[in-house]
Design a protein around this nucleic acid. Structure first.
Lengths: 206, 206
DNA sequence: TAGATTGTTAATCGATTAACAATC
DNA sequence: TAGATTGTTAATCGATTAACAATC
């Protein structure tokens, strides 16, 4: 019971608790109960306590959980203590939107570079980030020690680019391209296809 | 065993199979085996067959599954047979990116309207969709019989707008705002916070 | 036929839920 | 103390996996 192995659904909920906690902190709230958190997320309080058990987060009977401590622990578990440098591959409309999405700084990443195959976009500055050509990928990743890449290309060559990223030292890939990616052991891939998420919705409507 | 109840992970994978199948169809492939599909998605072939069992999709021993039939069945299950009218709430950078994301037509929805709180955006035309003020939400939803809404507002008032959407007749909400939403029985909500997805990645890196 | 592939059953695994003992 | 809330154990549920029988 030393290797902290947190279930994926729990990891996702931890991030959701954090968003609520940041609001509570602004309101100056010191303690929060599992019941209050549960209500915000439309889940049961037992699930909150179970999640905190997995995360080894402790509360106090009758008082609840201390807000600043909770925030600190969740940040630590998610590696959100300070934004880590990241790059984005594909500076189309989605990539552009992501470069302008300020919340990412709070979610542990900060874009230090963006790449595109289209030479017309190269040299442009989007929200303070310079667009480079995809050929310069390796040099930037290596020189800046970047570990996280976000894929916002429409498709095509995705697996080839992934292989290059991995070779250059990338350890985590967040993939929005409409193709599921694979990567070798030791490299984390989170596939975030809009199609999957939308399928769950449309399947239930009508 | 009449009420087709398909597990959510299976629904998500069905959409991923479809993306692969559309490519195979372009290549003129007639049949595909569970093994071939599994390899594309980095999963096991047994899982593919189990998914097809849930979906009541039939194949032929030794031949595999017929590609056009598979596409047709998955489209039917996901309600992707023809694009359904949808609206988008929040015409910021993410909303704009989504309005320009052409794949959605293939994923069962088509944006017929967009709304924003910022009056400076009202009247603008983004990728052929006119931006209306959020106050006109009800009239558009009701007059066009729209059932699906996508939330791309940065936060604030989200739950209030949700209640209005539901009252106006919306049956499915795809929520990108950094707040989990709840809705009454009969209204589907799919929460798609970037924070949750990203948390799974960053937790594993470093 | 032999062999490849589907289809299905049963075993396993892991997350959720229920219930209540422990604590302040 | 009484009562509220945490913390934990055990039961349940549901998805995945393994294995193999059925089929062409």
């Amino acid at each position: 019971m030393n290797t902290l192995e947190i279930p994926e659904p729990t990891v996702k909920r931890l991030s959701s608790y954090l968003l609520v906690l940041l609001q509570l902190q602004e309101q100056g709230k010191r303690y929060v109960s599992s019941n209050e958190l549960a209500d915000e997320l439309f889940i049961e309080s037992g699930k909150v306590r179970k999640d905190f058990q997995y995360a080894r987060i402790k509360g106090r009977p009758k008082r609840g959980y201390e807000v600043p401590y909770l925030i600190q622990e969740i940040d630590r578990i998610l590696n959100w203590t300070g934004p880590k440098p990241a790059i984005i591959i594909g500076a189309g409309s989605l990539g552009t939107a992501m470069l302008g999405y300020e919340n990412f700084n709070r979610y542990g990443i900060k874009f230090m570079g963006a790449f595109d195959v289209d030479r017309r976009r190269v040299g442009m500055d989007i929200h303070g980030v310079k667009i480079s050509h995809i050929d310069d990928l390796e040099s930037v990743v290596k020189s800046k020690g970047i570990k996280i890449a976000v894929m916002t290309l429409p498709g095509e060559n995705i697996q080839e680019i992934t292989d290059r990223l991995v070779k250059a030292g990338i350890k985590g890939i967040w993939n929005f391209a409409p193709v599921r990616l694979g990567a070798p052991e030791g490299v984390a891939v989170v596939n975030a296809q809009f199609s999957e998420s939308l399928a769950v919705l449309t399947q239930q409507v009508d």
